[in-house]
Amino acid sequence: MTQFIVNGQDVTLDIDPDIPLLWALRDDLHLTGTKFGCGVAQCGACTVMLNGMPRRSCVTPLSMVEGSEVTTIEGMTGPEIEAVKAAWVAIDVPQCGWCQSGQIMSATALLQQSASAPTDAEIDAAMAGNVCRCATYVRVRAAIHDAARTLEL
């Protein structure tokens, strides 16, 4: 029995505590915005917020989130996610879209943790864990800069 908070709601799951959070979110809670891309923390498509910090849910056993707050793309709120989503749409970042939840979670975390507008090097360091096979990287970078401007960082 694992109790935790998902997108602000108390959740109790009576399933194998070894199940990766990714599959609990997708298969048991039907929160499918969080994607499976590699299963081995190489691609970042499964990124969620765990107690406010970005976390690869594919390598996070359910037992680890007992008592924690998990936020998925569906439950993100606040100025940073709003600025990121607006920039993503304005710059038309996604192509196939599969990796984009993860890209957006990492980008939002970067802006949440940035006291000033992130440099290209800081964007590289923060986003290097998020693979985009469509190679939307030019626009990911542009959109993060754009969101930083919106947030007046």
Binding site: A41, R56, V59, A109, S114, A126, M127, G129
Partner: peptide, 16 residues
């Protein structure tokens, strides 16, 4: 590690 990409983004308290 970096902002939004620190060690605990992937690594946790135990081998997984």
């Amino acid at each position: 590690g970096a902002a939004a990409m620190n060690c605990n983004t992937c690594h946790s308290a135990d081998n997984v």
